[in-house]
Amino acid sequence: MTPLALPGVYAPQHDTDLLVQSLRQEPLPPHAHVLDIGTGTGAVALAAARLGAKVTAVDISWRAVLNAKVNAALARLPLRVMRGNLLAPVSGRSFDLVLSNPPYVPSPDADCPRRGAARSWDAGYDGRLLLDRICRDAPAFLRPGGVLLLVQSALSGAEETLRLLRAAGLNADVVEHRSIAVGPVLRSRSSWLRSRGLLEDNDGKEELVIIRAERLL
């Protein structure tokens, strides 16, 4: 069942599909507690709920929160949806699995948008405004043996994500790749991306990666 995407909410795309694919390959304990950061339509959270997990989904957008709740009701799946900034709504809790498809697209604007559709993908000059926060804060929310699965573009520095997660004591590696055609957002700023050496001339491709980071026992 394809999730309903309300206007202004990020519709599931290649990165969503890649994250769900990796989620399905992840062994979960019975009744695992799962957190989805930046849930959007709830597509990834609902995929976890279908595996029998107890899922909490968080998004800063009221519209996304409503969208995820509607999709959970349509799918008849239990899903706790909370509004808030990244991990703030679940302070003090811990999870077996943390999932995230955060905004990660490099933007000429230094700050994340406060409203509008671009809020779902733009993440500052290097695309790392939210990635860095997740790398810094998420390890403390993992139970022993817990796993973080994160999808991002190679344009926003997968090696830096690995470095930060390893520095936090996690065992982190890139476990999946997918090359996709450059979409309309990147095409619209291709000259700027090329000037920064992030996009090769006539490349026309973007690489998505899944980073898996495990908290050791």
Rank of each mutant, 00 (worst) to 15 (best):
H177K: 13
G146R: 00
A181I: 09
D122P: 02
V90R: 04
L150A: 00
A68P: 03
A43E: 01
K69R: 15
L164N: 03
L148Q: 03
L87M: 14
Q13Y: 06
A168D: 14
S107M: 05
V151W: 00
I211T: 12
L164W: 04
T161C: 14
A118L: 03
G40Y: 02
D173A: 11
L131M: 06
L87T: 04
R194L: 09
I37V: 15
V44I: 15
V175Q: 12
E160V: 08
L19V: 02
L99Y: 08
L164R: 13
L28A: 08
L35I: 09
G169E: 09
A118F: 09
R114K: 14
S94D: 01
R133D: 06
L51I: 11
H33R: 12
S153V: 02
A140C: 06
I210G: 00
A53D: 01
L216S: 06
R163H: 13
G197D: 11
Y125I: 12
N67E: 13
R80D: 09
V20F: 00
P30V: 06
E176Y: 08
L97K: 04
Q25D: 08
A172E: 08
L131F: 01
Q25W: 10
F95R: 00
P29F: 02
A213R: 06
A181N: 07
R50S: 09
P103R: 06
L74Y: 11
P144I: 00
